[in-house]
Design a protein around this nucleic acid. Structure first.
Length: 802
DNA sequence: GTGTAATGCTATTGG
DNA sequence: AGCATTACAC
């Protein structure tokens, strides 16, 4: 049971066993950090620390989940379940929901995502008559975000002479006012943005000593992963919570600090010693992940940075092969080289798709890679970019859900009040909002009480308005009475949204419809899942009652008959990212992601693409040394993801904004110590088709096209892939691009009641009834998850499954 | 009020 | 190139 200590090196073991007091673990890339964290928590529990008293803050929810599983293997599932583990945002959102009333918020407050926030900012700019070309919404958002991350309230912001000067000299003197109005509007809407989750937690701990003491006593042991990427707001939360027992353990690597742009403060790790003078420091310097060449190359890069803690990462692993560098003429060719390389490696080294990662600086670089991979039929999955929950149709439906849960949610109201179109136009809506602002209430209060507020509306518009309000009210009433699936399908149908999407026959429309389907399916899964109720919620309640915590599997948690409601499903959805999803169907795919998103991951083969000046390092970071050093750390992170092989590519030309731009190799390539590098030539290039007689000027597009035409695989003759089972799941990274083209219906005359059939949009269903004449057959088909549909076979195509 | 065509902006990185 | 906003016709 305790032989887990055996497999650790002395430094790692020290870090695990030093359970008391302040501990800082400087963990180089690939040094077994996760193992140490996992064992440390397990060790705490074996020493008798109650799992309810441990909080571990991780960088992603997925990391927390995985760590929990590993701990469960050591100490057992029941105990592991009670650990408080997750991201700052999700952990403190949970606490905030519990304590919201103290701050004047409802416990079912909405979490605004970035889109919501920006849309609100736009609305405010409009109302204030400010030019959104001067006050760019994204820029305003960032400014507000950074104020919040530094715990500067709107009042402080406007009172701060230095900030005011800064804004004035940037010709944006109204920034503070916007911030103030933005905050008021969020409050009135019962909404918090991402930064509020941390800001309000700070307020809570600052203004309510009894709350502070409660959580100080609860979280006797605190662990923070990726400490180098915490911002001031997070830093202070941790510091306050740890102030009583000072059992705080932070893990990080200054060399991997890559989130300064969103407020992360590398000083948090550099200054940890002055905050806790008694701190015990452990340095994990042995890399178990990568070859000597990779470690050496990475070290040679980071040596170019001035700001760093003293640390020597080394490895006992094999030398391995040099870092390969490929040059291409165009970004498409770059994709071809990478895809071709993956293809070959798979053949020659029996590698799996999941062993490969393609990492890039900006999301927009993924396209060329995707196309190249598709050509070679290599399955891939994109992480990041547009997340599933950020899709328009998903956001629309979620907006209905959110509005039902929290009527005051202004952004949700604006989104759906006239979608699908129900005759409540822009002018009416604007009038509502003006009135709401005049009365300091939320727009919903006006919509729901139009008569009281004497809204000037035509009879027709007024009727539509109250019809809409009644519909939303009816949803709200059903919240606790129906389970999440019943209610969500009801909303999807009776809002008219499903019909609206169904009527769109374009491939995109079909895809949108299927995405909605996929969302409803996942809600169904949520409802059907046996999983325990949120023990943490229970934990908080016990804490409130001051009672002893039941750590067993006792009746406290026995809740099998409980209805799983929609608000539970929706709660933290804004906090989910692609990285948090684990779809078994994605198990063996090449991973495509930004380097930022790759933090903490590892792959046998890593391709870092687009190593060009102005792209990586980004043109926006060339002016300040600190920014450039962050880019360099980013490159360090990219390289150290690789276990066996790292390949770097750059292109001499690249499309940006639809224009061909000339590029030169990144300075980072030169900074690599020469002995670790091999400048490779792609095979395809050795046999460069001079005979084509084309202009070989790399800056012309034609050449690339010829090159590509040659590469194009023969169109597959007949894709005899018969989709089986249930609906095709549409993941964010794997949207259905076009499903209309290949769908061939069977002759309606062959259909019989009881048959399983497939509909191109609804998927598989069972024929319940057939009626009507030969040319006018009407089929009633039951589709799992959608219910019965009447289909006129003159129009609807049905394929017989069995 | 609604739907479509023209215009204009964007693409660091993300919870 | 792709998307969101705007302008304009109905």
């Amino acid at each position: 049971m305790s032989d887990y200590l055996e497999g650790l090196n002395p430094e790692q073991r020290g870090a695990v066993q030093q359970t008391e007091g302040a501990v800082m673990i400087i963990a180089g890339a690939g040094s077994g950090k996760t193992r140490v964290l996992t064992y440390r928590i397990a060790h705490l529990m074996q020493k008798g620390v109650d799992s309810f008293n441990i909080m571990a803050l991780t960088f992603t929810n997925k990391a927390a989940r995985e760590m929990k599983e590993r701990i469960a293997h050591i100490v057992g599932n029941t105990e592991a379940k009670n650990l408080w583990m997750g991201t700052f945002h999700s952990i403190f959102a949970k606490i905030l929901r519990f304590e919201a009333h103290r701050l004047g918020y409802p416990s079912n407050f909405t979490i605004y995502d970035t889109d919501d926030s920006k849309s609100l900012i736009k609305a405010i700019l409009n109302e204030q008559g400010l030019d959104d070309k001067v006050y760019k919404p994204g820029m305003v958002y960032n400014r507000i975000s950074s104020a919040k991350n530094n715990l500067i309230s709107p009042e402080q912001y406007q009172a701060d002479v230095y900030i005011q000067e800064e804004d004035k000299s940037n010709a944006k003197p109204k920034m503070g006012l916007i911030y103030q109005i933005y905050n008021e509007r969020c409050f009135r809407a019962g909404a918090m943005d991402f930064d509020d989750l941390l800001f309000k937690t700070n307020i809570l701990l600052r203004d309510f000593p009894e709350v502070l003491h409660k959580y100080q006593d609860k979280f006797k042991y605190i662990l923070v992963d990726e400490y180098q990427d915490t911002n001031y707001s997070q830093y202070l939360i941790v510091k306050k919570l740890a102030a009583k027992y000072e059992n705080i353990c932070v893990v990080g690597d200054d060399a991997q600090s890559i989130y300064a742009f969103r407020g992360a403060n590398i000083q948090n790790i550099l200054n940890f010693k002055s905050d806790y003078p008694e701190v015990k420091v452990f340095k994990l310097e042995q890399n178990y992940r990568s070859t000597k060449n990779i470690v050496g190359a990475a070290n040679s890069i980071i040596a170019n940075n001035q700001d760093q803690l003293e640390k020597v990462v080394w490895t006992a692993n094999e030398p391995g092969e040099p870092i390969r560098v490929y040059k291409s003429l165009t970004d498409n060719e770059e994709g071809g080289i990478v895809a071709g390389n993956i293809f070959e490696t798979k053949m020659n080294e029996q590698a799996h798709n999941k062993d490969f990662a393609i990492l890039y600086r900006t999301n927009s670089q993924s396209r060329a890679m995707e196309e190249a991979l598709r050509k070679l039929n290599i399955p891939y999955r994109i992480y990041g970019g547009l997340s599933f929950y950020a899709r328009k149709e998903i956001k629309d439906l979620l907006a209905y859900f959110n509005l039902a849960i929290n009527n005051k949610n202004e952004e949700a109201l604006k989104r759906v009040i006239n979608y699908p179109a129900r005759g409540i136009g822009k002018t009416s809506l604007e009038r509502m909002i003006v009135l709401a602002n005049e009365n300091s209430v939320s727009p919903w209060d006006i919509v729901a009480n139009a008569d009281q507020f004497k809204v000037q509306l035509g009879a027709a518009a007024a009727a539509k308005m109250s019809e809409f309000a009644n519909m939303i009210k009816s949803f709200s009433i059903m919240l606790k009475a129906q389970n999440a699936y019943e209610l969500s399908s009801h909303i999807a149908t009776s809002s008219g949204l499903l019909k609206e999407l169904y009527n769109d026959r374009s491939p995109e429309g079909v895809s949108r419809y299927e995405n909605i389907e996929s969302l409803l399916n996942s809600i169904k899964e949520f409802v059907d899942s046996e999983d325990e109720i949120d023990t943490l919620e229970q934990d908080l309640q016990n804490l409130e009652q001051g009672g002893a915590v039941d750590t067993g599997t006792g009746e406290l948690y026995n809740n099998t008959n409980r209805i799983k409601t929609l608000d539970e499903y929706i709660k933290d959805i804004a906090l989910l990212t692609d990285a948090d999803k684990d779809d078994p169907a994605d198990a063996d795919r090449v991973s495509l992601m930004t380097i930022h998103a790759s933090k903490g991951l590892e792959f046998n083969y890593v391709f870092v693409v687009g190593l060009e000046e102005n792209l990586f390092p980004s043109h926006l970071s060339l002016n300040a040394r600190a920014d450039l050093e962050e880019e360099r750390r980013l490159f360090y992170v990219a390289l150290t993801r690789a276990k066996k092989r790292a390949v770097l590519t750059y292109s001499e030309t690249r499309y940006r904004w639809g224009n061909l731009v000339v590029a030169e190799a990144s300075r980072f390539i030169e900074e690599l110590e020469e002995k670790y590098v091999e400048h490779a030539v792609d095979k395809r290039k050795q046999q460069a088709p001079t005979y084509l007689g084309m202009n070989r000027n790399p800056f012309t597009q034609e050449r690339t096209e010829v090159f590509q035409k040659k590469e194009k695989p023969q169109p597959t003759v007949n894709p005899v892939v018969v989709p089986k089972g249930n609906f095709k799941k549409v993941s964010a990274a794997n949207p259905v691009k076009n499903t209309t083209s290949d769908f061939v219906a069977d002759d309606p005359a062959l259909l019989q009641t009881g048959m399983d059939v497939e509909h191109e949009r609804f998927g598989i269903g069972k024929i319940v009834n057939l009626e009507g004449g030969v040319n006018d057959i009407k089929a009633t088909v039951f589709f799992q998850g959608l219910g019965q549909k009447q289909l006129l076979l003159r129009y609807a195509k049905l394929k017989i499954v069995k």
